[in-house]
Amino acid sequence: MRVHHLNCGCMCPLGGALFDGFSRGLTARLVCHCLLIETDTDGLVLVDTGFGTADVARPGARLSTFFRYFNNIRFEHRYTALAQVRQLGFDPQDVRHIVLTHLDFDHAGGLEDFPNARVHVMQTEMDAARSAAGWRDTRRFREKQWAGVTDWAFYQPQGERWNGFDAVRTLIGANSHDILLVPLAGHTPGHAGVAVRTGEGWLLHAGDAYFYRGEIGNHRRECTPGLRFYQRMMEYDHKQRVDNQNRLRALSLATDQQVRMFCSHDALELERAQAANPARS
């Protein structure tokens, strides 16, 4: 399988380096790291979609005012998965599957841009989105982004083991062994990572299980103040989130495992992933 690393959203919250750890100006640079996977038998697979064309065209009707302004979202068509699939020379109709880490507004906005795709997500996540209540959850889960999807595949958090984690094979034809959902609840009730087997080992798209590169790969967690605050503000279950983040850190430090890990919003992680194999980016 060939894997392309895409940025399907640009968010520039006030705070600069207090959020992203490197910006010198007043605003930070956060991305929406998505994957486009070329399979041999099952067409194209997207992992998350970032913001979609309808979000760009009608942000006020699709997204909450608070998150639009807090995240300072840049609504540009070039960032949509649809535009990037075309830029890579593919037909968007060949996107047959979309695997979601979760249903937050910055991960599921492009679903309706790919009407031929089956959407794969944890059942617990959909249950939480459909029953969203309260100030935060009614703003994070935006039904308009996924109301038009008719082909869903829902999963329970049980199955096989993958590097010490529970994992679930996705129902993606011959590639069910190579694309796994890895339950990582905490950020949302049904949040999951997506593990992808490549010729060089495994990739793990950890979604929002962590937000900053310093939270993995080090024995001591490092995170900027802005992202520490955002994680706490958005978490569904603090203990689950921290426990799963600690487990991911341990996996990232295990030298006997060939797993390359990245989260959804760290711009430097995305740049490193793209630079690691330019022919696939």
Rank of each mutant, 00 (worst) to 15 (best):
L203Y: 12
R29Q: 06
L181A: 08
T49N: 01
F90W: 15
Y212V: 06
F262I: 09
R2T: 14
E271H: 10
Q240G: 04
F22D: 00
V149W: 07
G164Q: 06
W162D: 09
A61E: 08
V182R: 03
T255K: 12
V85C: 03
W162M: 07
G89L: 10
D55E: 10
G15H: 03
M233N: 01
H219D: 11
H77N: 09
T224W: 09
D266N: 10
A147T: 07
N71R: 14
Y155G: 00
E269K: 06
T198H: 08
A133H: 13
T80V: 09
P92D: 10
R86G: 02
E38P: 01
R2P: 01
T53G: 00
V242L: 14
K144Q: 09
T39P: 06
D94F: 01
Y212W: 10
M261I: 15
G190N: 00
N7Q: 11
R142P: 01
A206R: 05
A250F: 05
G173S: 10
S131G: 02
I98H: 06
L36V: 14
T27W: 08
Y210A: 10
T53P: 00
P115G: 06
Q93H: 14
Q240H: 06
F165L: 01
P157M: 08
C263V: 08
Q84L: 03
R136N: 06
L111P: 05
G186Y: 04
H205V: 08
R232C: 11
G110H: 04
V119D: 05
E271L: 15
G52N: 11
C32I: 11
R62A: 02
R142W: 02
F229A: 14
L82S: 06
R228W: 14
L181H: 00
V196Q: 06
L184N: 06
H120D: 03
D104G: 11
G110M: 09
H265G: 12
F22Y: 09
A276D: 05
W135I: 10
A267I: 13
Q257M: 12
D48W: 05
Q156L: 15
D243E: 15
E235V: 11
S23D: 08
E76P: 02
G89I: 10
H5T: 15
E143I: 10
H219P: 02
A117R: 09
R197F: 03
H97D: 07
R130M: 14
D243K: 12
H205R: 00
V3T: 10
M233K: 08
H120V: 04
G43N: 04
S64N: 08
V121D: 05
